[in-house]
Design a protein around this nucleic acid. Sequence first.
DNA 1: TCGGAGTCAATAAC
DNA 2: GTTATTGACTCCGA
Length: 363
Amino acid sequence: MNTCSTRNNNTCVRNVIENNFILTQKQPSKAPKFKLFNNKARLLPVCVEPIRTTKTAIFKRNKLKKKNLPFVNLANVNNNKTVIKKTKMIDPNTTRNFVYNHFDSLSADVNDYIETKKEPLDYYYDDIDDTFDNSTIITSNNDNLFRSNSIDNESDSGTCIEEINTKELAQRITNELKRYTIPQGDFFYIIQGTLSDLLRNPKPWSKLKSGRETFRRMEKWLQEPEEERMASLRIAASSYLACKRTPDDEFLISSSNTIKLKEQISPLPSPPSSTTSSVSLSPPQQLNKKPRSRLIFTDIQKRTLQAIFKETKRPSKEMQQTIAQQLNLDVSTVSNFFMNARRRSMDKWREYQAAKSTTAFEF
DNA sequence: TCGGAGTCAATAAC
DNA sequence: GTTATTGACTCCGA
């Protein structure tokens, strides 16, 4: 990996080389956007619009924006093409740090882009050795939560070949949460219900897409030294809560869906047991956010839908309309039911398990 | 346009 | 109080 050695004083205030990333403080506004250094062009940590952005990148970015989370786009420059590889959340505490490109050779389109002087938007990162994989997390000195441990791994060079046994990992996480008495709602920024579902019904690795990232994060957490795990969760919790802060700044929504006073964000428990002192203070209305109500099927509706699903996993649009009419439901509700039922159908996983059992991978 | 993936978040269950 | 369930939302990709 590259090193960030001497830098122009007015450009890079502080560089931290860690886990193959070079983090640096924000550029002074008048700093050059890039410079040649040792005959290598380096794009400094200025904001640049993605040259070839992807729908995924835009989606992630918007999502983070909505949550008021900082973000960077990670780009990779290969064969003169800049490709967005991933958008990551970053601990707000590290927002002063930016990843910057460290190009061996500035690709033509980057040059072109700089020439266009578009409005800044994102930050680019380039890993020359192409060791970046989906498990790579931007990190900073004090941000163990997002630490990647795979980049230095020889086997990770080039492509991501790791495979996680999600079922086993889920079990290990479950055990650790119990061991340290960590409520599900305080585990990183995963919503409690989602975490519960992930732990109880982990999808096989091969079936996961972007969801792999969550499992990677969990695995990294397990790999951390025992004493660092709680610190990781603390950092994650405070970041998460900070990002959920309301404009009025009076209340915070905790990851366990309770409301805490800002001052009441407490450290996560130390082993072997203790719990967070979350204090439920008020209903969600105080957050100026309309609580979403959830339709509860009547018994007859549910039984009918389940019976139909048993026979027909994919009813036609016309059939869905008929069902909706008969059950006095919206077509979208019926559609959602079948969508959810298909994906949550255990048959799917049983089939998978049966198939996998022949290859000694038990899921 | 539509189904899948990911996950939010209300609510039920423990 | 914590965990499990599940309807629905957002976005992606075919």
